[in-house]
Amino acid sequence: MKLYIKYMVSLRCKLFVKYELEKLGLHHTSVELGMIEIKEDISELQKQELKSNLAISGLELIDDKRSILIDKIKNVIIEMIHYSDEVPKVNYSDYIAQKLNYDYTYLSNLFSEVKGITIQHFIIKHKIERAKELILYDELNLTEIAYKLNYSSVAHLSNQFKKVTGHTPSFYKKIGKKRKSNLEDL
């Protein structure tokens, strides 16, 4: 039986969900971002208890098919940007459509209708968040970050970064270093 969970976007969330399933005596065959598969059928009582326990940590059991699909779209994007080291060989729209086995136009229209932003805007927001992380780690230069996040150039990354954050990547890096040094002085 498959269950879908909203806001499940990290490895810590996966561990928490596994723990909650074990507490209820449920055996999982798969725990992925946004989706779990359990061996048994879940009783209504178990479902309500799981729902309550997940809510305590900000996770939400999803029943509605449209919400499940929206969550799947978000999880594909988050996995692609934050957890994958390989850049997709095809453009994002084709990648998402292939992963979910739906027409991209349908997915795009549904996402925009429900979330109020386009899939492309959601991708950009996550790419900039990932760029921020990589800038603060200070292991890659901007050219390497631009390549890793599938930008055509450093200028393209810098322009989107400034549009989203209001700062240039180099200014953001200075702020991060300053913050680190202030914390070390404590």
Rank of each mutant, 00 (worst) to 15 (best):
I70N: 06
H82W: 04
Y83G: 06
I81M: 05
Y137K: 14
E129V: 00
D103I: 02
Y95L: 11
N101R: 08
D85M: 14
V90N: 09
D94S: 11
Y92E: 04
L136Q: 14
I78K: 13
I123M: 13
D94Y: 04
I128P: 01
R130A: 09
N101T: 05
I123C: 12
D138I: 13
E86T: 13
L110N: 00
L100F: 12
P88T: 00
M80W: 02
K99G: 07
R130C: 03
I145S: 02
P88D: 04
F111S: 02
H82K: 15
K132G: 10
N109A: 09
D138L: 05
K89I: 09
S93K: 07
I73A: 03
I70A: 01
E79N: 14
D71N: 15
I117E: 14
Y92H: 04
Y147Q: 06
S84A: 09
Y104I: 14
K125T: 00
L110D: 01
E129W: 01
D85A: 12
N101S: 11
V90P: 11
H126R: 14
H126S: 06
Y102T: 04
E86D: 15
V76N: 00
Y104Q: 05
T143L: 02
E139Q: 04
E133N: 05
E86M: 10
K115A: 09
T105V: 13
I70R: 03
V114Q: 02
T118P: 00
K132T: 02
A97D: 10
N101C: 01
Y106G: 10
F111R: 00
I124V: 12
K115L: 09
Q98V: 04
Y147F: 04
K74T: 02
V90S: 13
S93R: 05
N91P: 05
L100S: 06
Y95A: 06
L110Q: 01
D85V: 12
Y102W: 13
D103G: 02
N141K: 10
V114C: 01
D138F: 10
I73W: 07
G116V: 10
V114K: 05
V90T: 12
L107S: 14
N109F: 08
L107D: 11
K148Y: 14
K148A: 13
Q120D: 14
I123R: 07
E129C: 03
K99L: 13
N75M: 10
E139I: 07
K74V: 01
Q98T: 11
K72S: 15
E133D: 10
L136H: 13
L142V: 02
L100N: 05
K72W: 03
T143P: 00
H121E: 11
L136M: 14
V90E: 15
Y83S: 03
L142Y: 14
K148I: 05
I135E: 13
N109M: 10
S112V: 07
